[in-house]
Write a protein that binds this DNA or RNA. Structure first.
Lengths: 213, 213
DNA sequence: TACGTTGTGGACGATCCATTCCATAACTGA
DNA sequence: TCAGTTATGGAATGGATCGTCCACAACGTA
């Protein structure tokens, strides 16, 4: 019986995300979001509560999406392809950062940097996300170890933590201004230095002939 | 002939840095800085210009300090100890993040995350800083290669980029909520997977017996 | 078709914040 | 001691911003 909403909630959240992403939490005005989404303030506040609640909603959805992307790329395949999946995932993350020409970085990192210290909800959500990513990486590393692509004497938890750190680090140095080519190389190198099965040296750490500096 | 300043500029900048560090750029009010430093607004504006200029000053000083710390730890020693210096540096950075109980992260990362996209000065300064750190790491890796501690077939530029990414990544995942013990382990693991001289396996990637999960 | 309920969007009020202003203080050189 | 110059700090200002409010719109139901 009531009047139905004239907007698509999903789309509004997307626009709001773009705005927070572009200008941060404190730097984003509710008027900006109203303009970006086409909604009036009344609808905005009526549907999502205040600025903080809206951000938490956007941030939470983003964290969920980050984990989902990792799940899609990493889970559900034969052990024989586990290393390939890991490689594809790390390269995908590097490519995302490398091609982020606006240098917005990741909303997760940006939001955590700005708010984690003072907002327990943001801190908790980002910690959860890290834990989830870590678990996914660890599972794949164990799979690769079973198949003999990674030294089974290595601690999968430690290697997973290292890969996660590299992935998040790529994002950080990308935002700090490192050039895209180097970012891609970092992904290569990180995968190349993973300890291979004992006695088998992996070659990919080698110098890139095309580079002159 | 003029009235002399009643404050120590260095100390004021330190306090201002603490404030920006704690609450970010947009989240810091000039009143906060006035209270934190004990200065009146007149003195503050008279001495440092506006909020933006003050932040640039603080940010620039911090970048300089970051590079200086790296220089102190990394440069000027025999090749035989280059790997030790690298190890000490990476562990120091991990320790800094691990012991940052307030989870403020690094002002460089925080400032870059918040402002690099819109403030060319911040973007440029952080990029410079990355380049300087990269060069320092590369030099030490080359030294370690000369001494035979790192496989001389590996590209020092790539390894340097990887280490820098790990160092900045430790900071990022630390802020995102990863526990200190894991952060320290990441530093260990990153150093352990550096390609040793050919044929010599490095053992430190192994599982940690004390861990039960 | 009339009514009740909820959505809509822009105007409004209260607050906040960066910056300026100014009366006064502190100091030096004459 | 006096004059000139800069520092000081708090009040004032002007603009921005969050959240509320309200008159009106749209829809289902009786």
């Amino acid at each position: 019986m009531p009047r139905p909403r004239a907007f698509d909630e999903r789309q509004v959240l997307e626009r709001a995300r773009e705005q927070f992403w572009a200008t941060g939490y404190a730097g984003t005005r509710m008027d900006d979001i109203a303009r970006a989404t086409g909604l009036g303030k009344g609808s905005l506040y009526g549907a999502f509560g205040d600025k903080g609640k809206l951000f938490h909603r956007v941030f939470g959805d983003w964290c969920t999406a980050v984990v989902e992307v990792a799940e899609e790329r990493l889970t559900g395949g034969p052990d024989a392809e586990a290393l390939d999946r890991l490689s594809a995932y790390v390269h995908l993350m590097a490519e995302n950062t490398a091609s982020d020409t606006e240098r917005r970085g990741c909303l997760l990192a940006k939001g955590a940097a700005e708010l984690a210290q003072h907002d327990p909800a943001v801190a908790g959500r980002s910690a959860e996300t890290m834990t989830a990513l870590l678990a996914l990486l660890r599972t794949e590393i164990e799979a690769a170890q079973r198949h003999g692509d990674i030294d089974s004497a290595a601690d999968p938890e430690r290697l997973a933590a290292l890969l996660l750190t590299v992935v998040r680090g790529i994002e950080a140095v990308g935002k700090a201004g490192m050039d895209p080519e180097t970012l891609r190389n970092v992904a290569d190198t990180a995968l190349a230095v993973l300890p291979g099965p004992e006695g088998h040296e992996r070659p990919a750490t080698g110098r890139t002939p095309a580079r002159e500096n």
